[in-house]
Simulated scan of single mutants.
Amino acid sequence: MTRAFNFCAGPAALPTTVLERAQQEMADWHGKGLSIMEMSHRSKEFVSVAEKAEQDLRDLMQIPGNYKVLFMQGGASSQFAMIPMNLLRGKSKADYINTGQWSKKAIAEAKRYCDVNIAATAEGSGFCSAPAQNELNLSADAAYVHYCPNETIGGVKFDYIPETGDVPLVADFSSSILSEEVDVSKFGMIYAGAQKNIGPAGLCVVIIREDLLGEAIDGTPTMFSYKVAADNASMYNTPPSYSWYLAGLVFEWLKEQGGVAAMAEINQRKAKKLYDYIDGSGFYANPVAKNNRSIMNVPFTLKDDALDKTFLAESEAAGLLNLAGHRSVGGMRASIYNAVPEAGVDALIEFMAEFAEKNS
């Protein structure tokens, strides 16, 4: 079997060695005679898998002891509602920074529960940049400040962590978690859908400071309470156990690669190669401000968009999959997450060069 290079934005590429190990353990996990997906989530075997996954994530991200790590269902989209439900804590306002599609969705959901102050927006740049710190109009009475450090669709990345004073900073790290080091202590809460850099869809990781637990608004469903999740070790109900297990395998793989710092070096190198080629090609273009270019999601356009369908057909035939841009913006997008090897980026650049030469 030959593995293609998968540039999908999510569900995204998983490390081949992780898939192979999961395949080996599929029918018989560690000699138990059953698959881990058939196992009780309360068994000592699965609890050991869950606890190791959490500890490995804590090690990788150097998560302080006063933060809870939750493994939840519903993806990042459920968090859009759960955040105001849990973090308003008697206040009626929250600040949001709008840098694209996922910011917009978070804002729309938050408006169901509180007054939303748009602290800054990148609409004026066509969502091709991120607002600077001095452009943020933050509210002194906000319950929290929410932003998306890396917008998957537009390929826009903040090049700084917003300073919010005593107001908790909440961040949607779905498409950039574990891609480079981050100081968790600067955040009240970090959350990330798993299907980009952690594992398969169906799981969302929440990292939340303990002092933010326990003040959910009246009427919050039990399943939507972070405190309930924390008090029950993410097992108030049956969790997405197989996704949790696979996430644990990915965390082990990341440790074997040298951890987040080592992955960041590789990711920077992959992104630089691709951006340097695009910028120098004369055939392709990237619209994002250079200081805000994502190292995970690289959108690009062709000189003539009439060639888009041909590009996609030929790239797929060459084993380069899922390069179509998001339906809301068109063009192309290469998502080069941790599990996309450098050889995949090299193969993509080689294909792009050949395609440009044929069609110039």
Rank of each mutant, 00 (worst) to 15 (best):
F7G: 02
G10L: 05
L14G: 00
T16C: 01
A27C: 06
R42M: 10
S43F: 08
S48V: 01
Q55D: 11
D59K: 11
L70I: 02
M72T: 12
Q79S: 11
A81F: 04
M85W: 05
Y96C: 13
T99L: 15
T99I: 15
G100Y: 14
Q101I: 09
R112G: 02
C114F: 05
T121K: 13
A122W: 07
D141K: 08
E151N: 04
E151L: 06
G154Q: 14
D159Q: 08
T164Y: 14
T164F: 13
V184F: 14
F187P: 02
A192K: 14
A194N: 11
K196M: 08
G199D: 04
I208Y: 02
T220N: 04
M223Q: 13
F224N: 14
N232T: 15
S234K: 13
E256P: 01
M263N: 12
M263F: 07
I266A: 10
K273I: 00
Y275Q: 08
K290S: 10
N292F: 09
T301P: 00
S315A: 12
A318R: 03
N322I: 00
A324T: 00
G331P: 02
M332P: 00
A334I: 02
N338T: 07
P341S: 07
P341L: 10
F351M: 00
A356N: 03
K358R: 14
